[in-house]
Amino acid sequence: MNIELYTFFLVTTVMLILVPGPAAITVAKQAASHNSKLTFLSVLGVASADVLFFILSATGIASLIIASSLVFSIIKWFGIAYLLFLGISAIFSKAGPVNVDVQLTTMNPAKAFSNGLVIQLANPKALMYFSALLPQFVDPKEPVILQMVLMGLTCFIADLVVYSLFGRMGAQLARKRVKSWVINLINKAAGTALIATGIKMVTLGSTK
Score class of each variant (00 low, 15 high):
residue 29 K to M: 14
residue 129 Y to D: 09
residue 153 L to Y: 09
residue 11 V to N: 06
residue 21 G to V: 05
residue 179 K to D: 14
residue 25 I to A: 15
residue 110 A to R: 10
residue 52 L to G: 01
residue 44 L to W: 13
residue 162 V to G: 08
residue 191 G to S: 05
residue 67 A to S: 13
residue 152 G to S: 04
residue 128 M to F: 15
residue 78 F to C: 12
residue 76 K to T: 07
residue 27 V to A: 08
residue 34 H to E: 04
residue 61 I to K: 00
residue 197 T to G: 07
residue 128 M to E: 09
residue 192 T to K: 03
residue 198 G to R: 02
residue 197 T to K: 00
residue 3 I to E: 15
residue 204 L to Q: 10
residue 9 F to C: 01
residue 56 L to M: 14
residue 9 F to A: 12
residue 29 K to Y: 12
residue 81 A to R: 10
residue 11 V to C: 07
residue 138 V to L: 15
residue 64 L to C: 01
residue 74 I to V: 15
residue 72 F to V: 03
residue 207 T to K: 15
residue 171 A to W: 03
residue 107 M to N: 14
residue 87 G to K: 03
residue 153 L to A: 03
residue 151 M to Q: 09
residue 83 L to A: 07
residue 140 P to G: 00
residue 22 P to F: 02
residue 164 S to E: 02
residue 114 S to H: 13
residue 172 Q to C: 11
residue 133 L to T: 05
residue 160 L to A: 02
residue 26 T to E: 04
residue 174 A to V: 01
residue 145 I to V: 14
residue 198 G to L: 02
residue 23 A to S: 15
residue 202 V to F: 10
residue 34 H to D: 09
residue 129 Y to M: 13
residue 21 G to Y: 02
residue 35 N to P: 09
residue 64 L to G: 05
residue 148 M to G: 03
residue 120 Q to G: 13
residue 140 P to E: 06
residue 179 K to F: 09
residue 168 R to E: 13
residue 63 S to C: 10
residue 11 V to D: 06
residue 37 K to N: 08
residue 41 L to G: 12
residue 196 A to I: 15
residue 194 L to Y: 12
residue 28 A to P: 02
residue 103 Q to V: 15
residue 135 P to V: 04
residue 158 A to L: 00
residue 169 M to Q: 06
residue 165 L to H: 08
residue 61 I to N: 03
residue 152 G to N: 01
residue 160 L to Q: 08
residue 195 I to Y: 01
residue 143 P to Q: 06
residue 47 A to S: 07
residue 141 K to W: 11
residue 82 Y to A: 07
residue 71 V to F: 10
residue 190 A to R: 02
residue 49 A to G: 08
residue 13 T to N: 13
residue 48 S to G: 08
residue 65 I to P: 01
residue 84 L to H: 07
residue 97 P to D: 14
residue 70 L to H: 12
residue 108 N to P: 03
residue 77 W to N: 01
residue 6 Y to L: 15
residue 92 F to S: 07
residue 186 I to Q: 04
residue 5 L to I: 05
residue 4 E to G: 08
residue 159 D to S: 05
residue 181 W to R: 00
residue 89 S to I: 11
residue 206 S to W: 03
residue 190 A to D: 03
residue 101 D to Q: 14
residue 21 G to E: 05
residue 25 I to K: 05
residue 6 Y to A: 09
residue 84 L to K: 11
residue 65 I to V: 15
residue 109 P to T: 08
residue 114 S to D: 10
residue 30 Q to K: 14
residue 166 F to W: 07
residue 9 F to M: 11
residue 172 Q to R: 12
residue 122 A to G: 07
residue 64 L to F: 01
residue 115 N to L: 14
residue 76 K to H: 11
residue 45 G to Y: 14
residue 105 T to R: 15
residue 107 M to Y: 08
residue 123 N to D: 11
residue 164 S to Y: 01
residue 81 A to D: 04
residue 86 L to I: 10
residue 118 V to S: 11
residue 208 K to P: 10
residue 91 I to V: 06
residue 137 F to G: 11
residue 47 A to C: 03
residue 92 F to E: 06
residue 106 T to L: 12
residue 179 K to L: 13
residue 136 Q to Y: 01
residue 176 K to Q: 12
residue 33 S to F: 11
residue 196 A to G: 04
residue 120 Q to V: 09
residue 20 P to H: 00
residue 13 T to P: 00
residue 51 V to P: 12
residue 90 A to M: 10
residue 27 V to D: 12
residue 185 L to R: 10
residue 2 N to C: 05
residue 58 A to M: 09
residue 178 V to P: 06
residue 35 N to G: 10
residue 142 E to K: 06
